[in-house]
Design a protein around this nucleic acid. Structure first.
Length: 157
DNA sequence: GCCAACGTTGGC
DNA sequence: GCCAACGTTGGC
């Protein structure tokens, strides 16, 4: 077994919160609607079953990592891109040539305490996270194993 | 609500 | 291939 990778997924809780994920059947959801090529490539090429995910609430009070999840299905075509009624519809995506991909994630557990963006910014060991790099807007982004450990330990304090 | 930073699009 | 215009992200 190769070592697992770590990721951070952003979501606006008014649109889709960690609690929403916990309330899904089997605590599992399709991560649809990603419409950025760099994020798509990470999902398509790098994310593997068993990889771990930090679930981050953006545009929220507080802005924070609030829970963990696991990749339970590897990349497959995002059907919302093919649905004209979906707000994520993209006419350039077709069944024969689906441009956009998604993975499935399953909620693991809420952190004992949210780890806020403010705290993350104040932690030198986390200063290279794309989350806190100026202008990095990636909605799914890689996390180093060391960063994962630091954030989980912060949540226990 | 504002707006800086960024990715994408499309005219040329 | 360049780059201005546009739409979006997301913190403040």
């Amino acid at each position: 077994m190769p070592p697992v990778n770590y990721w951070l997924f952003k979501s606006e809780p008014t649109a889709y919160s960690y609690e929403d994920l916990q309330n899904e059947d089997d605590h599992t959801a399709e991560w649809d609607g990603v419409r950025n090529f760099q994020a798509r490539n990470l999902m398509r090429d790098e994310m593997k079953i068993g990889d771990r995910v930090l679930f981050y609430h953006s545009n929220a009070k507080p802005m924070a990592v609030v829970g963990t999840a696991t990749i339970v299905k590897e990349a497959y075509p995002d059907h919302t891109a093919l649905d004209p009624r979906s707000k994520y519809y993209d006419p350039k995506s077709t069944p024969d040539n689906p441009i956009w991909m998604m993975v499935d994630i399953k909620a693991d557990r809420a952190l004992a305490r949210p780890v806020t963006l403010q705290e993350i910014k104040q932690t030198p060991a986390l200063e290279n996270m794309p989350l806190v790099r100026k202008g990095m807007r990636l909605s799914v982004q890689p996390v180093r194993a060391s960063e994962w450990e630091v954030i989980l330990s912060m949540s226990e304090l």
